[in-house]
Every structure is written in structure tokens, then in C-alpha cells.
Nucleic acid binder design. Structure first.
Lengths: 213, 213
DNA sequence: TCGAGAACCCGACCAACGTACTAGTGTCCA
DNA sequence: TGGACACTAGTACGTTGGTCGGGTTCTCGA
């Protein structure tokens, strides 16, 4: 009774921003599988159904969390278009890898302001470089898809134990997969340089197509 | 009692293959969100816990389902390496789009025989073309990631209603995203040619790197 | 032919989940 | 001083993935 911790009159009012921030922290710490409305509420020192005053469903929380981390991607300030795009894409990828739960969540429509800001910049830069029409669309989508795909697979395979188990499995079935077993397809890949190299190839292809128009 | 429909003596015994086939059918029909062990069991005319005799967890079912659809991807029979790779990658993408629930599931380690068979072919073809070392790894990963990313975004956005809603949202905020609004970034994209074009750019970049070594 | 053991299946149950509904509690303006 | 509003706690429901232990059917050697 007297010890009752003075209900109401909380230190800080619950807001959507605080919920999203807590969700990102929880996702970073424990992964997508362990994000629960109850756990999220617990982190905020609040009862679970209370969250639904600020948020409509759990999916909303996920969408907001995805957009929130995209705010970390700085919009580059560079003149030369390949440099600008390289900078954007690398930062974008780095953010997704910092939050490995995010790539699989891109399988839902994401239209948050931070995501769109990035797409806007990408499109504008490519137009500035001279891309138009189908070439423009192909370049935009291609770069985005390449980046997303890379982040998705890397965030899947970067855990050492999964990696080693995969290699063991391949070597155990070396007769079925001779090339993979022989060439160490999955051995110590330096994902950073791998991505950079693939990106360079793609940009080279784009530049070549640009010259031919 | 007397009416009891002669239990046991089922028409066909339950097997992992039948479970996986039913899972794929259910996923195709209703999407990943509605795959439930109970619903799956119902489709197989079986009680839910029975599934756990053949399968350890629900995740196993998902992993098996992903690998199962990769069996649809034919291994091309072509001499010229770019043609072979183009054929493989296009078929691969087509099956993922036929089963739109699959791309987001690639965010889990997939080591099924069908998946590996495809990777083996990709690697072998690139080696035949002359790629080695880091170039080889970059090409393999790049192609795979580009394909996966494309399938992921396309399977997300290909529903017309989502598409239209997105465009309406962008146009409503045309001041924040002038380029996107002006250039109809999301309007009637022909994803097929978009992908083909992006793939060509990437292959061109790879071929260029190959000549320089 | 028969009987033991393996293979297979199910009813009942559990904890945890997302979330609708209700009943407050505090704050602020008339 | 008394509502009106904004916010929160509590209770509860239906569904989910998964376990347990006890049945039932099948297989196969003797």
C-alpha cells in the first residue's frame, strides 16, 4: 500500500519512438525469433497490451524497426557517380549487417521515410550519371537487389559454427559436390572484399552500357 | 463402434516426402504465414502430433520445403559459359517466383542436396570459364546474391495492390521524393526484362574482369 | 502360425504467443 | 469542481509449436 510504486506518473511517457528503439535493441540482442510483445513491454517496464495503444500490430513494430535502422545510412556527398553509389551501397550493407535480423524482413513492403530517402538518392544519382528509361530501372533495381541479396546470405552464413558445419557436410559428401569440396567454396570468405569486387563488376557493366547509348 | 471406419490400414503411409509435398502445396496456396502444423496435418488427414514422428520441428519442414522446390531447377546443358549461367539463373529465379514464400526463407542455412547441386554447377561452370581464386568466389556469390535479392524484392512487390498503394504514397509525398515521383520508379516495371538486363550488365562486368587476367 | 519388437499414430496437455475488451488512473481545461 | 481525454493495467480468449505416454498396426524371424 504505502510501498506501492506510485502508479501512473511514470518517469517518461511511452511513445512510438521509445517502443521502436526498444524493439531494435531487443532484436539486436536476441534476434527476430525472440521479439515478443510481452518481452518488448517488459523492457519498457509496461504491461504487454499497453503497447497496442501506440501501435496497431506487431508487424507495425517490425516495419518501424526496419525503417529505423535505415536512418543510420548516411546520404553520401560525392560528385562522381560510381563513388557516390559505392559509398551509399557500402553503408547500406554495413547497417544491415550490424542488424542481422533485418535482411529477411525486407520480404515485406517497406515504405518508411528512411528507406525511401535512400532509394531517392540512388535514383537521382543514376539519372545524373545519364541513365534513362529501362536502363535506369535496371540499374536501380539491380544495385538494390545485389546489396540486399548479399546482406541476406552473409547474415545467414557469417556465424562460424554454421559455417563449419556446412563445410563439414560438403566435405563429407565430396563425391556429390567435387567442385565445392575441392575449391573451398565456403572457406574463409572475406565477405567484405567479395562484395566490393562483385559491386565493381556490376558497376563496370553499368558503365559499359552507359557508354553504348 | 460398429460404424468405425476401419482404422489403421491407411491408403498410404505418411512419409517425410508426403509431408513436404503437402507443405509446399499449402505454402503455395496460402503463404508462409498460414502454414501451421495443425493445418498441414489436416491436409494429410492426420492428427497434428503425428507429424513430429517424421519431422523434428516445424523449421525442418520449412527447410525441406525450400530444398524441394529447388529440385525444379534444371541443370542446363550448354557449352558457352554465359549462356549456361544465364539459363541456370533464370530458371532458379522462375522457381522462386513460382513459390513466392521461398525467398524470405533463404535467410536460414540451406544445405539440401538440390540447393547444393545448383551451387556445384554454378561453381564448376565458372571454373570452366577461367575464374580462379577471389574472382571465382566473387562471381559465384555475386550471381547468387543478385538472383536471390531480385526474387526477394519482386515477390514482395508484385502484388498489384501493394504496388498501387506504394505509388500513391510516393506521389502523395512528391515533395520529399521528387525523383521517385517524377520517374515512376515503381510504375509498371517489367521485372523479367529488368532482371535480364541487370544480369547482362553483371555478366559483362565479369567477362571484362576475366579478360584482364 | 504366431508372437515379440519396431514403426507409427493419436488424445490430452502445456507454455507462450498476439491481441480484444474492460476498468481504471492521472492530467488538463471549462 | 467536474467532466473529457490520454494513457495504462488487468483479464481473458483463441491459436500456436511442441511433449508425453499410451495405444494400434506392421514386419519378420522362428
Amino acid at each position: 500500500m504505502w510501498l506501492r510504486p506510485a502508479k501512473g506518473r511514470r518517469d517518461a511517457p511511452l511513445t512510438v519512438d521509445r517502443i521502436v528503439a526498444a524493439a531494435v535493441a531487443l532484436l539486436d540482442a536476441e534476434g527476430a525469433g525472440r521479439l515478443t510483445m510481452r518481452r518488448l513491454a517488459e523492457r519498457l517496464d509496461v504491461a504487454a497490451p499497453t503497447l497496442y495503444w501506440h501501435v496497431k500490430t506487431k508487424d507495425d513494430v517490425l516495419d518501424l524497426a526496419v525503417d529505423a535502422i535505415f536512418a543510420e545510412v548516411p546520404v553520401p556527398d560525392e560528385d562522381e557517380w560510381t563513388g557516390a553509389i559505392r559509398a551509399l551501397v557500402l553503408a547500406w550493407r554495413a547497417t544491415m549487417l550490424r542488424h542481422p535480423w533485418s535482411p529477411p524482413l525486407l520480404g515485406r513492403p517497406t515504405l518508411g521515410p528512411n528507406v525511401l530517402r535512400r532509394t531517392e538518392f540512388l535514383q537521382r544519382t543514376l539519372i545524373g550519371a545519364g541513365f534513362r528509361g529501362a536502363d535506369l530501372a535496371a540499374a536501380t533495381h539491380g544495385l538494390a537487389n545485389f546489396t540486399i541479396g548479399s546482406a541476406l546470405t552473409q547474415s545467414t552464413w557469417q556465424h562460424a559454427d554454421i559455417h563449419n558445419a556446412a563445410n563439414a557436410h560438403i566435405r563429407a559428401n565430396a563425391d556429390a559436390y567435387p567442385t565445392l569440396a575441392a575449391h573451398d567454396h565456403l572457406d574463409h570468405p572475406d565477405y567484405d572484399t567479395l562484395f566490393r569486387q562483385g559491386l565493381d563488376r556490376f558497376l563496370a557493366g553499368l558503365a559499359g552500357a552507359l557508354r553504348n547509348t
